[in-house]
Structures are given as structure tokens and as C-alpha cells.
Design a protein around this nucleic acid. Structure first.
Lengths: 223, 223
DNA sequence: CCTCCATCGGCACGCATCGTGCCGATCGAC
DNA sequence: GTCGATCGGCACGATGCGTGCCGATGGAGG
């Protein structure tokens, strides 16, 4: 504040990014309950107009703030078999969902969206479709390589896979842990896996406890 | 219930039920956005104390109001095979979720729960566990009759089935129509169905278009 | 270097809801 | 008929919303 004479008080577009950062910080510290336009303005030392000029509502602000930190944990690696890739991806997503700032901000948007179907459409289009699509891409590739049966309707499958995770995250107190992901993938592979991948499944079931140790900390390659 | 001729201004326990009714009426007319303790008090011609004496927050009120209309659409019929029973039940649930008063009240509770993990636990325990359990009961019975494979982990399956419906209802603009339910059940039966039930599945796939006409017509009621 | 004007921070307003406190009326049990 | 618990009504301070107005600021154009 006082130690930065370089802060030239106000700019045009840079203010926007700064406000998004403040929103994320606020979400990290006080959670969704503390997220209001007034709070963000206070925290940023900014007039409310400066925010309202950019976003029409707190939901729109949260939506953009979410975009700022969204992409990082989204991409599949395509390193192993389908099951392994899905598993890693789901566990990584679950970590993101249950940590700030993504967790509280995302929850906030979803809560707001329950009273506003337009916002719900935007939310779905901007985030959830993306999630489903990347999952769909991965399992479609697996279908081509013969890991999944040709008859499977993968669009519904992608929705089921993602939906189950979001359901647990939003409406349950259970964590999205390895057990949950494995149970989900068991059903998915039992439904659409071919003999090749079924082999991997039984192998997985045997070494589930072992894997649990491996993935608990950082298995993430740098990105 | 009682033979009270006119409204004698105030009673003890009867007021409680009346307030829940008013809450449901309000939800039906103005939706979740219009649900506040002040609004309920105004509508009921009641002091706010009369409400606060019974419920600590709007979320608690909505939770009880939901209980009042909850049970009706919950029970499985056990009339046909698993798939048919699940199908009918899911379609019936989806209708309840997307119609007032259940729709807006339920959405309201869920929105509030995103900022309050205690409420989320209560919500889960009081409603979602019930839903999952009744589904689990039905598919467990099917497992005993040989309609589902013995190896299936049905607890996860029940969560996947229910979770997918809730995901679509909460976070999507797509309706929970016959197409969606069929896609979900396709995956479920492909995973855990035995040859007996697979037979029913192919039969279903043939008549999917016919069924689609029957239910997809009327415009959805606003949530 | 200076002028100009969009943007800025700050303040205030009216409105709404929250949760609480107090009052006098009224119901219902005794 | 008495009396205590509950009731409706009103008011309060606090908070957030969305908007209006002000004077200051600073970057672009001259």
C-alpha cells in the first residue's frame, strides 16, 4: 500500500486482472460465504463502480475468476491405458475442486446458478461441457484403440463419469478419494471395457492398496 | 384435520404446518429467488419471531418444507424387471425435481448448502442417502434374483445412478428425459446386467423412439 | 509540456433482508 | 375468570445491492 509508490492508482485493463486476483484471494481466505461485490471492492480498495463496470453481478465476477485458474488441472496425459488416465485425471480434478480458490469460487457460482437458469446455462457451457468433452475425447480415443467396445454410447458415458464426481463433491460429505474413483471406473470398465482392459481391471483390483500409497502425494509432472 | 371454523389467529403446532405450506406456495409462485424469511412471514401474515422460533435459518425451513412433499415420488414399484423399475422411478423423480414446489425448494437448500458444510451434511443424510438407499435396495434385490451379476459393487452403482441424475438436474440445461435415463441405464446394465436382463435391454433399444414421443412433449415447468 | 476526458476512489442514497428486542393483544390451559 | 405462553406488529442496527454524483487522477492527443 504505502511501500509501493509505483502503484499508479488506476489503469484500464490491468485493474480487471487485479480484481480477479483479489477475488481469488478473498475466496481462499474467507470462502464463498465472504464473497460479495462490496467485500471485493473493500479488499481491493476500489469503488464498487469499478467492479460493476466490468461484471454485472457477483456471479459473473466469480465466473471470470474461475476461468483464471481453471485450465491448469484439466488435461489428460494419454500416458497409460484409459483406466489409468481417467483415474489420474479424476483424482487431480477432485483435488482442485476441494481446494481453494477453485473450490469456494466454483461452489459460489453453482449456488448462484440455482436461482438463475441463464447463469446455469453459461456455467454449463463454459466449464462443464469442457470437462465432459475432454473426458469424451479420451474415451473416444480408447474406443478407437479397442480398449472400449464399439457399441458404447460414449457421450452418455462421459456425462456419467463427470456427473458422479460432481455429485459427490456438491451434495455429499464423502471425499472423492481413490476408493470412489475406482468404484466408478469399475462400473465404467465393466460396462464398456474389452477383454484387454478388463485384464487391467482385475490387475488393478489386486493392487488397489498399493496404488493408494503411490498417488497420495505428488505424481504430477511439471506443467 | 381440525374442525376450526375460522382462523383463530394463532395456534401452537398447527402454525408450524401452516408456515411450511406457505413456504411451498411461495416457492411455487415466485421460485427460489423469492424465498426469504421475511417473504414467508409477510405472506403468512406472521411476525418473524414466529418463524425464527421454529427454524434457525431459511435453509432449515426449506429443509422441513421439502420433507413435507418429499416422500410421495420416492418408492419403487417392483413391478417389472430392474431396468423397467429404475427407468420409471428415475423419470418420476426427474419430474418431481423439475416441478414446483420440490424443484425450487430443493434447489434453494442445495444452494445454501454450498456455503455451509454442516447443512450439506444434513441435506445429504436426510434426502440423498434416502434416495441412494432406495435405489440400492432395488438393485440389491435384482442381484439376488440374478438380474445383476454377483460381483457388482452396488453401493457405488447406486451412487452413480442417482448422481448422474442430480448432476444433470443441477448443472445442466439438458432435461432429464427418457433419452438420458436410457443412456444411463444402458451403461448400468452393460456393466452389471446378466444375460436375462441384457435381453430386455435390446428390446428397449428397439422401442426407444416410440417411447420418446410419449414423454418429451410438454414444456418443462420452470424450476 | 499541456489539455482533455474517460476512468477512478469515495461517499451517499433507497431498498431489501437479516436477526433481535420490545410491546400489547389474545389464546388456551388451569 | 386468571395467567402465562404465544402471537402479530413495529422498530432497530447491520449488511449487501445497485445507482448517482463528485472531485481527483492520469494517459492519450496535441
Amino acid at each position: 500500500m504505502t511501500d509501493t509508490p509505483a502503484t499508479p492508482r488506476r489503469r484500464g485493463a490491468a485493474r480487471t486482472e487485479e480484481l480477479l486476483r483479489v477475488t481469488l484471494d478473498l475466496a481462499t481466505e474467507v470462502g464463498y460465504a465472504g464473497l460479495s461485490i462490496e467485500a471485493v471492492a473493500r479488499r481491493a480498495g476500489v469503488g464498487k463502480h469499478t467492479i460493476y463496470r466490468r461484471w454485472p453481478s457477483i456471479a459473473a465476477l466469480l465466473l471470470d475468476a474461475l476461468s483464471l485458474v481453471w485450465t491448469s488441472d484439466l488435461d489428460y496425459h494419454n500416458a497409460g491405458d484409459v483406466r489409468a488416465d481417467l483415474r489420474e485425471q479424476f483424482l487431480r480434478s477432485s483435488l482442485a475442486l476441494s481446494s481453494p480458490p477453485i473450490g469456494p469460487v466454483y461452489r459460489g457460482v453453482i449456488a448462484e446458478a440455482q436461482a438463475d437458469s441463464t447463469l446455469r446455462a453459461t456455467l454449463h457451457e463454459r466449464f462443464l461441457v469442457t470437462v465432459e468433452q475432454s473426458t469424451l475425447d479420451r474415451i473416444t480415443r480408447a474406443q478407437r484403440t479397442g480398449e472400449l467396445t464399439a457399441e458404447a454410447n460414449l457421450e452418455f458415458a462421459a456425462e456419467v463419469l463427470c456427473g458422479t464426481l460432481y455429485y459427490r463433491w456438491l451434495l455429499s460429505t464423502r471425499p472423492i478419494d481413490e476408493n470412489a474413483v475406482d468404484g466408478l471406473l469399475d462400473m465404467f470398465m465393466a460396462a464398456y471395457g474389452t477383454s484387454t482392459s478388463t485384464q487391467a481391471q482385475t490387475l488393478h483390483a489386486a493392487s488397489r492398496e498399493t496404488l493408494q500409497v503411490r498417488c497420495g502425494n505428488s505424481t504430477r509432472p511439471a506443467n
